[in-house]
Simulated scan of single mutants.
Amino acid sequence: MSLRVSSSFAALVLALSTLAAPAVLAKPLSGAGAVKMIDTDNDATVDLKEVQAVASATFDRLEKDADGTLDAKELKGRLSKAGVKQADPDNDGTLDKKEYLAAVAERFKAADPDNDGTLDAKELQTPAGKALLALIK
């Protein structure tokens, strides 16, 4: 692991820790702001790997009862009842990290209409991009 990757990861963790502040969560995240926060390789776009790193940290932050899953209360409206049902193939009413990250990947794909594997600020401002950001904020 290179020093650049380690420092980028540290910066990502620091950025994520600031998201726990209620004032930040209440404020909508813009496409450009999201790219700036998530884009660890500084290419002005975010790819699925970068998004899933943030989503994984979000899952860990939301998962309060240490059972390894998120229930509707822990999800705090990030997914509708129908969204949870769709993302829950084992139908247990909760999402484990694998299921949560699969939902993130599905929303990423929906937000990537040109199928280039990256999202720019403009794509993150679309309804599909905003739905993705709702899962990772």
Rank of each mutant, 00 (worst) to 15 (best):
Q86M: 09
E74R: 06
K98N: 13
A111T: 08
K85P: 01
L29E: 07
K76F: 05
Y100V: 03
K98M: 07
T40P: 00
D60E: 13
L124G: 10
G31D: 06
M37Y: 04
L75S: 04
L48A: 10
K64Y: 06
A72D: 14
L48F: 00
G83A: 05
G31L: 08
Q52I: 00
L124I: 06
D92P: 09
V84N: 03
D60N: 11
K109T: 15
L124V: 09
K85M: 07
T94C: 13
D43L: 05
A121C: 08
A102K: 15
S30N: 04
D114T: 14
V54K: 01
P22A: 13
V35K: 06
A103G: 08
K36L: 12
A87Q: 08
Q52P: 00
V46T: 09
T94N: 13
G117P: 05
G77R: 08
V35D: 07
L62I: 07
K109E: 14
K98S: 14
D41G: 03
L70H: 00
G77D: 11
V84P: 02
D71R: 09
D112P: 05
D90P: 05
A72Y: 03
L29D: 02
L79D: 09
D43E: 10
D120F: 11
A105V: 03
E63Q: 13
V84M: 15
T94Q: 15
G33K: 06
K85R: 14
G31C: 07
E74T: 03
D71Q: 09
M37N: 05
D112C: 06
A34N: 01
F108H: 12
D47P: 00
P89S: 01
G31W: 07
V24R: 14
I38T: 07
S80C: 02
L75I: 06
A102Q: 15
K49T: 11
E99R: 12
L29F: 07
D120P: 11
K76P: 00
K109Q: 14
A32S: 12
A111C: 03
F59R: 08
E123I: 09
V46Q: 04
L124D: 12
L124R: 11
L119H: 03
A66M: 06
K76A: 15
L62R: 11
T58M: 11
D120T: 15
A21S: 12
T40A: 14
T58R: 14
T40W: 00
T40Y: 01
G33M: 02
D96Q: 10
K122V: 12
V24L: 14
G83P: 08
L70M: 06
D65Q: 11
D67T: 10
P89C: 01
V54D: 02
T40G: 13
M37L: 15
A82Q: 14
